[in-house]
Design a protein around this nucleic acid. Structure first.
Length: 287
DNA sequence: AGGTCAACCTGAGCGC
DNA sequence: TGCGCTCAGGTTGACC
């Protein structure tokens, strides 16, 4: 499901029931996610208070009151849902009914907080993960030490991107998917950003010129901001924590639109495969 | 060193 | 209905 806008949407949805709240009960249903749960995950989480809930790249991070941080990744198909007694309008946001919550086939983790609310992690492909990492070891942790710049921060500018792409012989499409360059972009928003910046996905990263980089940086930021505002893109799996769909997919210019007209020049959108992933682009206006 | 690609899983959609 | 095939928003480790 998730790229940065979807993870941001989910994080914001979890905040009211997690931040400042304590876990009263935690249960894992099956341990064989691709990355197994840490030892006694439920026991270590129970009774802990979440001091701060935030996002880094495509990870949801919960800083706990005991010096550990809860790290959540949704993989390709992970969902988080929030349930409470009485359903809608509880807690100042829309939440789902409590009845039956956490009993689904792929509901892997059920977490109750003193909001009170029940949070369910569902992931049918099991590519997601939940870990506990000592907070003071986060920066050096394997998952985070190599991560690139946050695209929505002021740190990402033309100069930084230019130096990050310097000497890279891989296509720009693949370079932007590399989390060590920019952290949080995925297949959808890379395609969309390249279209907005009128850059061919096949162009070698090192050959993206200064003018193009100056278009690419705002294109990335704008497409992400618009998608966050729309609640992310719901293609197959993504839902907000209240079960509603994001609607940014209605705004795609090229992604998943093979054969449809390019909104700019009306040429047919092409689909190619790069590094094993679909790329959608307009061969006429992306150079 | 740096880049590509299969593998990890399940489910949905499509053609037959 | 059902089978077989392809594809899916991510990440990683094995391999050129």
């Amino acid at each position: 499901m998730p790229e940065l806008p979807e993870v941001e949407t989910v994080t914001m949805g979890l905040k009211p029931v997690m931040e400042g709240h304590r876990f009263t009960h935690v249960e894992t249903r099956r341990g064989d996610l691709r990355v197994p749960f840490p030892n006694d995950f439920a026991g270590r989480l129970t009774g802990r208070r979440v001091e701060k809930l935030w996002r880094r790249a495509k990870y949801i991070m919960g800083t706990l009151d005991d010096g550990e941080t809860l790290v959540i990744h949704l993989g390709m198909s992970g969902r988080m849902s929030v349930h409470a007694e009485g359903g809608q309008r509880t807690l100042g946001q829309y939440v789902q009914n409590l009845a039956g919550a956490g009993t689904g086939k792929h509901d892997h983790v059920v977490m109750d907080t003193d909001a009170p609310a029940r949070i369910v992690f569902n992931d049918h492909r099991r590519f997601g993960l939940m870990l506990l990492v000592p907070t003071d070891e986060l920066t050096g942790h394997k998952l985070f030490r190599g991560l690139g710049v946050e695209p929505l921060s002021d740190d990402l500018d033309a100069a930084l991107l230019k130096s990050a792409l310097k000497g890279k012989k891989t296509p720009i499409k693949s370079a932007l998917l590399d989390q060590r360059v920019i952290a949080g972009l995925g297949n959808i928003y890379v395609c969309e950003a390249l279209w907005r910046a009128r850059i061919s996905p096949k162009r070698l990263a090192a050959k993206v010129n200064t003018d193009q980089i100056k278009r690419l940086v705002p294109a990335i930021k704008q497409v992400l901001k618009e998608a966050v505002k729309a609640g992310g893109s719901s293609l197959r799996d993504h839902k907000r924590v209240d079960g509603e769909l994001g609607y940014f997919q209605k705004s795609f210019a090229v992604y998943d639109r093979e054969g449809a007209p390019c909104p700019r020049c009306k040429c047919k959108v092409k689909r190619i495969v790069q590094a094993g992933r679909s790329t959608f682009y307009c061969a006429k206006c992306q150079r």
